[in-house]
């Protein structure tokens, strides 16, 4: 009987540890977007390791080493209702996440100012695989259906299972995301346990579905407003996943993660926003990509690591 009790206690301790790892640290506000947060109970004080740069550490892991990106092109990316539902968009966004795109760029290296107790974010991200999904969940996706799309891609073997990665579900312009795409958000990121592993994934819809809501300009640097609009949102989701993959690492007192703090802020541009202005040149293309919050020098939005901070 004592053995049984001992085993029971071991199980209980193990479950407690698991629960501690998977539950966000309780606090007043946790992230949901640009400077917005979700109120949660506050009976456990979060460990704050670093302060003074406008964003705080809450104890969870960051992604270390090169973060891989996997694309799931959902819907019709050949000849959908908008011109941007096309192979051109597929090629442009694949190049942005290719080895000479965001990967190791002075822009993406802003994320190296974030870390956890065992190391810092690398500033590297590469596209490691892509697949397609022809409306397996219909044209109206709930958040759980987005997760089902990711789960299906992994369990079917179309994409590998990778815990050091972000899986993007990229929907063509005829697909709705019913929890508020276009009225509340342009994209989101989260995590879930899929096939027993901690998988990070993101939804980003074709911004041409609602250009006034999800695009800074309709005349865009690459002549593809959908791809150019999605590029900034995808960069946003990638850098938040790198620095807050399990939603318990880096965010500020209002619940804003690093990219939230600079959402829709681009800094100085070459050309004007509205007429194809851009602020980054990556992978041989010009892009208008939002700034990111640098966790050093007091904190601020900049276009490159160590660059000038801008407020808009």
């Amino acid at each position: 009987m004592r053995k049984l009790l001992f085993v029971g206690l071991i199980v209980l301790v193990g479950l407690s540890l698991l629960e501690a790892q998977t539950t966000r640290n309780a606090r007043h506000v946790v992230p949901t977007g640009k400077g917005w947060g979700m109120e949660v109970p506050h009976d456990i004080a979060p460990p704050i390791v670093i302060t003074g740069n406008g964003i705080n550490y809450h104890g969870g892991p960051v992604i270390k080493g090169t973060m891989k990106a996997y694309f799931i092109w959902y819907g019709n990316w050949t000849n959908g209702p908008h011109a941007s539902d096309s192979q051109t968009t597929v090629n442009l966004l694949s190049s942005l996440f290719g080895s000479s795109g965001l990967n190791g760029s002075n822009y993406y290296r802003i994320n190296t100012t974030y870390g956890d107790n065992s190391g810092n974010v690398s500033g590297n991200i590469v596209l490691a695989g892509s697949t397609t999904d022809s409306y397996s969940q219909g044209t109206g996706l709930s958040d759980s259906r987005v997760q089902a799309v990711v789960s299906s891609a992994i369990t079917s073997g179309r994409l590998p299972k990778d815990t050091n990665a972000i899986y993007f579900v990229l929907t063509s312009s005829d697909v709705r995301e019913t929890s508020g795409f276009c009225t509340r958000y342009c994209g989101w990121h989260t995590r879930a346990t899929i096939s027993g592993s901690d998988i990070k994934f993101s939804f980003v819809g074709n911004s041409d579905r609602c250009s006034s809501a999800c695009e800074a300009q309709t005349v865009s640097p690459n002549g593809d407003s959908g791809a150019d609009g999605m590029a900034s949102v995808m960069a946003h989701e990638a850098e938040e996943t790198d620095t807050d993959p399990d939603l318990n690492a880096w965010y500020d007192s209002g619940g804003a993660e690093n990219a939230d703090k600079c959402a829709w802020k681009f800094g100085p541009t070459t050309g004007t926003i509205g007429s194809g202005g851009y602020n980054q040149t990556l992978a041989g293309h010009n892009w208008l990509i939002q700034m990111n919050w640098e966790n050093s020098r007091g904190g601020g939005c900049d276009k490159v690591l160590g660059g000038t901070f801008y407020t808009r």
């Binding site: 966000r24 979700m38 342009c186």
Partner: peptide
């Protein structure tokens, strides 16, 4: 967990 949203412009 609830997804972390990028709010619209």
């Amino acid at each position: 967990p609830t997804p972390i949203q990028t709010t619209t412009r």
